[in-house]
């Protein structure tokens, strides 16, 4: 990402001081060597940053760019179990996969758009709730009190747990017959007459949302807490002396301060959540119930259950374009511009 957040709290530069070196720029030489040596030195130094970036750039190319390009190429081929053995020579079919998979009138396209919409709703719910919880916890733990360290550690546990463990424990908890959730709701509290199903039918979507939030909110908490800690206590004290209420201090001091961090946190969480695959796969198995079928598991199903890689790739390409466009708009609209 080229537009990183600038810290508003950064101390002002003393007048007349040299600007800080930009990334990759050479610091000013300490003494003046002879002209010839100076030229060689400059050339060497101007190549140095490229040399240092080269390994990372090469690996980026190998690990990200080439597979992505291959994926887009596959979207234009008929890659199935018939052709997988010599996949480089799979027949080129042009836009056929896109026409088939993305046509809202067809069975596949209709299912895709339905799950796309569901994924959007899911992302909004998960990111919104995670952010709200993370923010509340960060504000609460920003002031000093006994046991703060313990609580901070405790809050991070869901984030530190492997997703597999999280999913298994939750499936035990929401099991219809013996799960602790139904035990609480039906036997202990008597809120419901019948034990509801959580992993099949309409409730499956909400279970997915709850488990995702449970896993994700500590990330928001961690990032926002870090941002909050850059606010000097004096600012809050000054606001309090001016008679600002707690709510006013939150909206007028806290929120503006964490705005840049917020921008990044929401973007990252949004992208992760939109592409969520592990949780539904672990909670529901290879195919999720209709109410909870997100887009990534759907693409997986087309590619690895039905062996239609071309179609899966075409759907992935659509997602890639949609996510890149959404991210670009978001970055322009929300994230602070780099000051010239």
């Amino acid at each position: 990402m080229s537009t990183g957040p600038d810290r508003p709290a950064r101390p002002a530069r003393p007048a007349g001081a040299a600007p800080p070196p930009g990334p990759g720029a050479a610091p000013p030489p300490p003494a003046r060597p002879p002209a010839a040596r100076r030229g060689a030195e400059r050339r060497r130094r101007s190549l140095l940053p490229y040399g240092m970036v080269a390994p990372a750039a090469l690996l980026e190319l190998l690990i990200h760019i080439i597979p992505m390009a291959l994926g887009i190429y596959i979207a234009f081929t008929s890659l199935t179990q018939l052709t997988i053995r010599r996949w480089t020579t799979a027949p080129f079919v042009g836009w056929e996969n896109f026409a088939e998979g993305l046509d809202p009138g067809g069975a596949l396209g209709a299912a895709l758009y339905q799950s796309l919409w569901r994924t959007v709703v899911y992302t909004v719910c998960v990111v919104g709730l995670s952010w709200a919880l993370g923010m509340a916890a960060a504000v609460a733990l920003n002031s000093r009190f006994r046991g703060r360290g313990l609580l901070r550690t405790l809050f991070l546990v869901p984030y530190a747990l492997p997703v597999y463990v999280t999913a298994i424990v939750w499936t035990f908890m929401v099991n219809q017959r013996d799960g602790v959730v139904n035990r609480l709701l039906v036997a202990d509290l008597g809120l419901l007459e019948e034990r509801p199903f959580w992993l099949i039918g309409e409730n499956a979507f909400w279970v997915l949302v709850v488990v995702s939030v449970w896993r994700l909110w500590p990330f928001a908490f961690l990032m926002l807490l870090a941002a909050l800690q850059s606010v000097p206590d004096e600012v809050y004290e000054a606001a309090a002396i001016d008679g600002a209420s707690n709510w006013k201090r939150f909206t007028a001091v806290t929120l503006p301060v964490v705005r840049p961090a917020n921008g990044v946190v929401l973007l990252v969480m949004g992208l992760w959540t939109f592409n969520e695959f592990d949780l539904p796969y672990l909670l529901f198995g290879e195919t999720s119930p209709e109410s909870a079928r997100l887009v990534s598991p759907l693409v997986y199903e087309h590619s690895f259950v039905n062996w239609n890689f071309g179609l899966g790739a075409a759907m992935s390409a659509l997602l890639l374009v949609a996510l890149v466009a959404a991210s670009a708009l978001y970055i322009r609209a929300v994230l602070p511009r780099r000051r010239a």
Partner: peptide
């Protein structure tokens, strides 16, 4: 048939959906 794997998934899923309906009073 080459589509056997897909057939098991699609058909099995449809029947699983019916069991889900049966269990939830649908």
């Amino acid at each position: 048939i080459p589509e056997e794997g897909q057939m098991e998934t699609v058909l099995g899923e449809a029947v699983a959906g019916l069991f889900a309906e049966a269990a939830t009073g649908g």
